[in-house]
Amino acid sequence: MDTRPPRQRLIGLTGGIATGKSTVTNLLNQKYGVPILDADLYARLAVAPDSGILSAIANRYGPEILHGDGQLHRQALGEIIFNNVQEKQWLESQIHPFVKQCFWSALAQLEQEQAVVLSIPLLFEAHLTDWVTEIWVVTCDPTQQVERLIKRNGLTEAQALARIASQMPLAEKIAQADVVLDNSGQIANLEPQIVRAWDNH
C-alpha cells in the first residue's frame, strides 16, 4: 500500500472534542459540495453488532460493555478508556486499522474529486498528518467546549473534563495547523472563516 493518498487537495479537519467539527464539515459540504470522509462514522462501523472488533471489546471488558440488543454501551466503554491510557491505546489499536482501511477505500473512489475533507479527530495522535495536504483545526472557548460536551453527551462536568484531558491539548494542534477556525461564536461568524480558508489554500 502506498504511504500517501492520491494527489489532490486533501483537507485534514481536526480539533478538540465538541469544538464543532461536524458544523464545519456540514457547511463545507453544503457550500462547496466537497465529499466528507468521517473517521467517527468509520469508528462506529468498526464496532457494529457482531463485528470482530466488538467481540474483542466484549471479551476484554465483559458483557456489561454491551446493551441488551448487542450494541456497544459507549458510556460504559468511555468510563474505562478515558480514565486509563493503556486501555485507550488498546482500543485504538483495534479500531484504527479498520478506520484507515475505510479511508483508503473511500479515497480510491474519489480520485477525480478536486478536494476531499478528511474529518479525523485523532489526526495528530494517530500520526496521519502525512495523509493530507493541509490541516484545519476547529477550536472554541474552553468553557464552551465543556458545556457543549456535557449537553451533547449527557455527561457530568468531571466526565467531560476527563474526555478533554485524554486528548492532545488544543494549543498543540493549533501550533501545527495551516488554518484555525474559531467556533466560539455563532455560525454567522464561522462561515466567513471557512470561506477564507477554502479560497486561500
Score class of each variant (00 low, 15 high):
68 G>A: 14
197 A>V: 01
104 W>P: 01
76 A>N: 14
197 A>D: 02
103 F>H: 00
101 Q>P: 02
83 N>E: 06
174 I>T: 09
21 K>D: 04
154 G>F: 06
82 F>E: 04
2 D>W: 00
201 H>S: 15
94 Q>V: 02
168 M>D: 03
138 V>C: 05
119 S>C: 12
180 V>P: 09
72 L>W: 08
20 G>P: 05
4 R>L: 04
63 P>D: 15
13 L>W: 03
118 L>N: 09
144 Q>N: 09
132 V>D: 02
178 D>I: 07
200 N>P: 08
92 E>Q: 08
200 N>L: 10
175 A>M: 04
20 G>F: 13
67 H>A: 14
117 V>T: 11
115 A>F: 12
26 N>M: 12
167 Q>I: 07
34 V>H: 08
39 A>F: 02
151 K>M: 03
91 L>K: 04
108 A>C: 09
33 G>M: 09
52 G>H: 15
52 G>L: 08
188 A>D: 11
57 I>S: 07
102 C>N: 00
99 V>R: 00
147 E>F: 05
92 E>S: 04
175 A>R: 06
3 T>P: 12
20 G>D: 00
46 A>K: 01
141 D>T: 08
187 I>H: 12
54 L>N: 08
139 T>V: 15
121 P>K: 12
44 R>L: 01
114 Q>C: 06
61 Y>A: 06
78 G>N: 08
185 G>C: 05
43 A>W: 06
148 R>H: 10
27 L>N: 03
84 N>W: 10
111 E>L: 08
16 G>T: 11
120 I>E: 02
138 V>Y: 04
132 V>Y: 00
27 L>D: 02
99 V>L: 01
9 R>W: 13
81 I>T: 14
49 P>G: 04
147 E>T: 14
135 I>Y: 06
85 V>C: 06
173 K>C: 12
62 G>D: 09
176 Q>M: 09
171 A>L: 07
68 G>V: 09
132 V>A: 00
142 P>C: 00
53 I>M: 05
76 A>V: 13
45 L>Q: 05
162 A>N: 10
17 I>P: 05
132 V>E: 00
2 D>N: 12
151 K>H: 11
11 I>G: 07
67 H>E: 06
102 C>P: 00
198 W>E: 07
141 D>P: 00
90 W>N: 01
20 G>T: 10
130 D>A: 11
78 G>C: 15
200 N>W: 07
107 L>C: 11
170 L>S: 10
82 F>G: 03
198 W>D: 12
141 D>G: 08
168 M>R: 13
126 A>Q: 05
174 I>P: 11
28 L>Q: 06
5 P>C: 01
35 P>Q: 04
86 Q>A: 14
141 D>K: 05
128 L>Q: 14
114 Q>T: 11
89 Q>S: 13
2 D>T: 05
70 G>V: 03
49 P>W: 00
182 D>K: 05
201 H>L: 15
52 G>V: 05
56 A>E: 09
136 W>M: 01
158 A>E: 13
126 A>R: 06
176 Q>F: 02
106 A>Y: 01
160 A>L: 08
72 L>E: 09
4 R>V: 05
197 A>G: 14
12 G>D: 01
193 Q>W: 13
55 S>H: 15
94 Q>H: 07
115 A>R: 13
62 G>R: 15
136 W>G: 04
171 A>E: 14
151 K>W: 01
127 H>W: 02
57 I>G: 02
183 N>Y: 02
189 N>Q: 14
20 G>K: 11
34 V>R: 09
